[in-house]
């Protein structure tokens, strides 16, 4: 099989762009720790209330301007369902689902992760700008899915 010259050039340029995108994505993921949320720990989804840390959901100060939010998701609420933190805080979310698959998205940030029963999902975000951030469930989880929301207040 032989290709036309023009087709060769077209394919080389096209493939080049794709490879460049890959290299960039890989570099950010593995060299800068910007990989997507991929929590690997598991737990028994029928025993969430008895399993640490989810036996005690809440907001915990873990360092200077650094918080951990231990959160459970269930139809159709987040627990805790109100978070208040000072501006400039780094927040580490540790989450699991008590029933079906949910998703968490904080509008105006890059927080976007699936939270499935049986896995512990983790994601971190620094909140620099004060405001009232809308947090929604972005995976269909039942008849009240459109009501599953809360806010993060950054002061």
């Amino acid at each position: 099989m032989k290709l036309h010259r023009a087709e060769e050039i077209w394919l080389i340029v096209g493939v080049g762009i794709i490879i460049l995108a890959m290299v960039f994505t890989g570099y950010q993921a593995f060299a800068h720790g910007m990989a997507p949320p991929s929590g690997m720990e598991t737990l028994d989804p029928q025993k969430v209330d008895e399993t640490a840390p989810f036996d005690n959901p809440g907001i915990f100060e873990v360092g200077a301007d650094e918080y951990e939010v231990v959160m459970t998701l269930e139809a159709f609420r987040f627990n805790p369902n109100e978070i208040e933190i000072p501006a400039g805080s780094e927040v580490h979310f540790t989450m699991t689902s008590k029933d079906v698959v949910h998703g968490i998205q904080v509008i105006g940030t890059n927080i976007n992760a699936m939270v499935t029963p049986g896995h512990v999902q983790r994601i971190s975000q620094k909140f620099d700008t004060p405001g009232e951030y809308l947090v929604i469930c972005n995976e269909y989880c039942g008849v009240g899915h459109q009501m599953m929301a809360m806010t993060i207040v950054v002061k």
Binding site: A6, L11, I18, A29, P37, G103, M114, T116, G118
Partner: peptide, 29 residues
């Protein structure tokens, strides 16, 4: 953005799904 799949495997699949771009580019031409 699912849990339970490592970052490396996700990366490999992303690579695989982008490789489909090659026959698509051939088609466009």
């Amino acid at each position: 953005v699912d849990p339970g799949i490592t970052e490396s495997w996700k990366f490999i699949h992303v690579f695989m799904s982008l490789s489909i771009g090659f026959p698509s580019l051939m088609t466009a031409f």
